[in-house]
C-alpha cells in the first residue's frame, strides 16, 4: 500500500475527472430538457404525440445502458456513413438513456399535482402552457427533486462506462495508470472515493434544495409523525 502512486498520477487523473464532469454535466442538462419534453409528450391527449413517446421510453427502459452506448457508437456510423467521436457519442448515449427515465419522473411528478390546481389556473384565464409553466411544473419540480437527483447520481456513476468506447474519462485513465503501475488496490480505491464524494455532495445538496423549495408551501411537514419525536 503506497499513497505515492496516487499523488504521482493526480494531474493525469485530474484530466480524466474533468472529462467525467463534462460528460455528466452535458448529459444531465440535455436529458433534463429532453426528459421533460418526453414526459409531457407521454401525458399528451393527442395519441400521435403520446404513443411515440411511450414507445421510446419503454424501449430504452428495457435496454442495458451498455447496449445503447454500443448501438450509438457502432451503428450510427454505419447509418450515416462516417465515424463519430467517442465523446459526443457517449453524450448522445447517456442522453438517450437518461431522458427516458427522467421522462417517467416528470410524468409522475406532473400527475401528482391535483387536478384542482389545473382547473383553478385554467378557470382564471391562464392558457394551458401558462398553467404548466406557473402552476404545474414548479410544484411538480419540488416533488421530482429526490428521484431526479437519484437519476443524476446514477448518470454520474454510469459515465464510467464511456471508457469502453475510449473516452478518456476518470475510469479509463485509472485503468491506464493501473496497467502501467500495477497498483489496483490504491488506484481503484481512490477513484471510487472520488465518485463517492461527488455523488454524496449531490445528494446532500438535493436535500437542501428540496427543503428550501418547500418553505411555506408545506410547513406542516415539520409536525408530521416521525419515529424520532414519537
Amino acid at each position: 500500500m503506497s499513497i505515492d502512486v496516487i499523488t504521482r498520477n493526480i494531474p493525469y487523473l485530474y484530466e480524466g475527472f474533468k472529462v467525467t464532469l463534462q460528460l455528466a454535466a452535458i448529459s444531465i442538462t440535455l436529458s433534463f430538457v429532453f426528459g421533460t419534453i418526453f414526459g409531457m409528450a407521454r401525458l399528451s391527449k393527442y395519441r400521435i404525440i403520446s404513443i411515440p413517446a411511450t414507445i421510446y421510453i419503454e424501449i430504452v427502459r428495457g435496454t442495458p445502458l451498455i447496449m445503447v452506448i454500443f448501438w450509438i457508437f457502432f451503428l450510427i456510423p454505419v447509418l450515416i456513413g462516417h465515424p463519430i467521436q467517442p465523446f459526443p457519442s457517449a453524450v448522445a448515449a447517456f442522453t438517450v438513456f437518461t431522458s427516458a427515465y427522467i421522462a417517467e419522473i416528470v410524468r409522475s411528478g406532473i400527475k401528482s399535482i391535483p387536478v384542482g390546481q389545473v382547473e383553478a389556473a385554467l378557470s382564471s384565464g391562464l392558457t394551458y402552457w401558462q398553467t404548466m409553466r406557473y402552476i404545474v411544473l414548479p410544484q411538480a419540480l419540488t416533488k421530482m427533486i429526490p428521484p431526479l437527483v437519484g437519476q443524476f447520481i446514477s448518470l454520474f456513476k454510469d459515465t464510467s462506462l464511456a471508457y469502453i468506447i475510449g473516452v478518456m474519462e476518470l475510469t479509463r485513465r485509472a485503468t491506464i495508470v493501473n496497467n502501467r503501475e500495477y497498483k489496483s488496490f490504491e488506484i481503484f480505491t481512490f477513484v471510487a472515493l472520488v465518485y463517492f464524494v461527488v455523488c454524496f455532495t449531490m445528494s446532500k445538496y438535493a436535500r437542501y434544495l428540496e427543503k428550501k423549495r418547500r418553505v411555506g408551501e408545506d410547513h406542516r411537514t415539520e409536525e408530521k409523525y416521525t419515529p424520532a419525536n414519537a
Binding site: 390546481q117 382547473e119 378557470s123 402552476i135 410544484q139 408551501e217
Partner: peptide, 22 residues
C-alpha cells in the same frame, strides 16, 4: 374558451390555492 374564462371567476369547494405561492 380562454378569453371567456378570464371574465369568469371561480371558487371551488377545496379552494385550490396555489401552495407554492404566497
Amino acid at each position: 374558451i380562454t378569453p371567456v374564462r378570464a371574465e369568469i371567476g371561480m371558487v371551488f369547494q377545496h379552494f385550490h390555492l396555489y401552495p407554492h405561492k404566497t
